[in-house]
Design a protein around this nucleic acid. Sequence first.
DNA 1: CCTTGATTCAAACGAACGTTTGAATTATTA
DNA 2: TAATAATTCAAACGTTCGTTTGAATCAAGG
Lengths: 212, 212
Amino acid sequence: MGESIHATKLAILNASERLVAAHGFGATSLRAITSAANVNLAAVNYHFATKDALIVAMLNRRMKPLNDARLDLLDKFEKDAGDAPVAVEKILEALFRPILELIARPAKGGRNFLRLLALCLAEPGAFLKPLVQKEFAEKNRRFHRALRRSLPELSDVEVHWRLHFAHGAFFHAVAHSRVLELSSGGRCRLTNCGSVLERVINFCAAGLRSPA
Amino acid sequence: MGESIHATKLAILNASERLVAAHGFGATSLRAITSAANVNLAAVNYHFATKDALIVAMLNRRMKPLNDARLDLLDKFEKDAGDAPVAVEKILEALFRPILELIARPAKGGRNFLRLLALCLAEPGAFLKPLVQKEFAEKNRRFHRALRRSLPELSDVEVHWRLHFAHGAFFHAVAHSRVLELSSGGRCRLTNCGSVLERVINFCAAGLRSPA
DNA sequence: CCTTGATTCAAACGAACGTTTGAATTATTA
DNA sequence: TAATAATTCAAACGTTCGTTTGAATCAAGG
């Protein structure tokens, strides 16, 4: 071992991930975090210097692996396709599946990380936006390029719009699945991630391919 | 007049709407609000009793008119259609257009209200969720029923899922249009709301109508 | 065993927060 | 104009926050 993160640091990251996802950024105090992590209050400032730095570290821990997984999957599909453009469904799968696999693995953040992402988009905190934008910049470029190849009849800006729509359909569906659960009277849930992936890919692929 | 809201109350509502949309719930202090509204600090507690009550009032001011406009539009389209089911595009228009018209009218909240809605969904504040859910319950029922009539080949739960996807595609697109602006290098903007409405309706209608 | 550095701990700091108070001021009514 | 209610105001209250501090504890090497 030796390479692994300090136990205290890890406990703080896990506790803050859970609590911030449950109560939001501002409403989660360092005292609540350190208490849940069974560490001393000053441990946060010792290991992360400041609360903002802790939040950034908490996000970075999950962000990079997620986007790497998406890009790796897209790479794989592009290699499988050879010279032909990748099917729209495959591009969407590369974009969506890593998030659903994250949800299924509570040890890797699970649903909590999705709530953090939603908070990042909604909360206009100055230090969060750049982090998200920089982290997602390459991902957006790669997926936009792949879609343009697969949908050559669409203009550049049209692909931008539709990719945005597709991302919104999926992200909203999984991040705010509670809303669907309630409005459907509990008949629609996020338990069976495989069927959700099939459904949302089917929906978005039709939208992407729709004639202008 | 006399019927209209107190000037101080209105100044507080306007200032809090702007500041909360810009900085989030927790990060917006009553001192910042009252200072921006040019009223005394204690005016908030005098007119709204508490900060939480102010936020609820701030949301209620925009929420009801928005959903009423959507339901009115759906009513109109249903009357126009007579006994036939309403076209999917019309149902989506009834769902989306009132929000875009809100955006175009800064005096009625404009883009700020959208950010508040996104915050409501993301921030797990206990007092916000019920407000949104209760307010949107009837709207969801009405639009689900209309869609089922127009898409009789889809099952009940399938319509729930696809309506959720459609709402996500639109809401994410308009609430987080900044993300699209950046990832498209400024080529995609939310200025021309008409073209956005056309685009998102086209996308979602294709998704809704897609064979299972 | 002693020393050195890393980590933990209890305690406190100053700042900012939502809220309350009671007097001053303004508006309303008779 | 006098009396009454509504509103504004400056000041303060108690709490909670993120952060700092300096001593205590632990780990490891010479």
